[in-house]
Design a protein around this nucleic acid. Structure first.
Lengths: 201, 201
DNA sequence: TGGAAACGTTAACAAAAGATAAGGATTAAA
DNA sequence: TTTAATCCTTATCTTTTGTTAACGTTTCCA
């Protein structure tokens, strides 16, 4: 995939958070790098500090933990979303989970060191601080909903909500990943689907 | 409680995020206001836009949802922590939950409108953007752990972890609130406690 | 293209959690 | 101080979930 295309797509995608003036973009874009993950390639590995934030131009990734030798999927990201092991990235500590490409995935990357340089760059500092703030605030809102769902809803309710609000995920992600995401086992999700399907008639 | 004391405590407490120069503090502190909540007073009510971020000088609050007429506690905050219904505050939408004082609680407040003024204040803008970013990043890290716990751990494991890492909560918060926080019913938590107590001998 | 791996469903059983109610202890309030 | 409210525990029963394993499909490679 062409770099210029990726850069443009990135700029468009960032508009949900912030827009750069030409002069700012010229500087900002010099700090970007690019990466293509093949299916099953890892973006982050447990035990290593996550060094980049990625923006997905094309493709999809999963976040998963390994517990007792089992992989448990906690999250997915698709096109036009940022991806990183944020706690690891922000605190510079080893990641506790893996991030892996579900399909061939095209990314634009911002390295931690480069982000720091931009935060210290007189022309960019204010905008980058704001950019960081808005991204972080965005995730807070997402997380708030997610935690609320775990606290106030049953697994079946969480499934029903997901099925209503993000039906496309089911076309794109194996069902047992979605089960993990909902905090239940694949077998249990299969049962819930059967139950709720009958009720729909 | 004396305002000057509260302001000083606030400044000290903010040091976990950011430190202000004298000149900055003079401006910043003019935007602060103060509040004392009596036990059971609400900081935020469902259906209303949350207008402030509070910093707890003294006291404790709970976040709770009402579902089918039942109160379900999702979170607690204590001294030296910020409190707000963030999604409501940030997006200017009605809150989906209540925030209520568990004890008499002393707060320093930043109103949304004032925060915007500070973000536009030439002397303060950069620092406030950074402040906002760091606070939001802090919560992302908290939320990441919380969601991970829901996805990868059983209720019993979540209880055991909490009991290890934040035992003091049990001295300060009714147990059925903690049950909600863990995503289970009070009856179930009581059983888990009995189970794990026996295993300890 | 043939064999292996991955995936979803189902069954059977065990374990855990939810719902409801009752009882006792503590705390708060009238 | 007496009454009421709050809180935790326990018991019983129902429902749901977890666990393990089997089966048939589909997908993926080698």
């Amino acid at each position: 995939m062409d770099k210029q295309f990726k850069i443009n797509a990135f700029r468009t995608g960032l508009a949900q958070f912030i827009t750069f003036e030409e002069s700012e973009w010229e500087i900002f874009s010099q700090y970007l790098s690019f990466s293509t993950l093949k299916k099953k390639d890892h973006f982050v590995v447990e035990g290593k500090v996550c060094d980049c934030i990625g923006f997905i131009i094309q493709g999809a990734v999963t976040h998963y933990h390994v517990k007792d030798g089992q992989e448990i999927t906690g999250y997915f990201c698709f096109e036009n979303e940022l991806v990183s092991a944020y706690k690891s990235f922000l605190r510079r500590i080893p990641s506790t989970n893996f991030i892996q490409a579900l399909e061939e995935t095209e990314l634009v990357l911002i390295a931690y060191a480069d982000l720091q340089k931009m935060l210290n760059h007189p022309m960019l500092a204010l905008k980058m601080e704001r950019f960081g703030r808005l991204v972080a605030e965005y995730y807070i809102c997402c997380y708030e909903d997610r935690v609320t769902a775990f606290v106030t809803q049953s697994p079946e309710e969480r499934y029903t909500t997901l099925e209503k609000t993000a039906k496309d995920i089911f076309q794109r992600v194996p069902q047992h990943f979605i089960a993990n995401f909902l905090g239940i086992t694949p077998v249990s999700l299969s049962r819930i689907r059967k139950r709720t399907l009958i009720l729909k008639d």
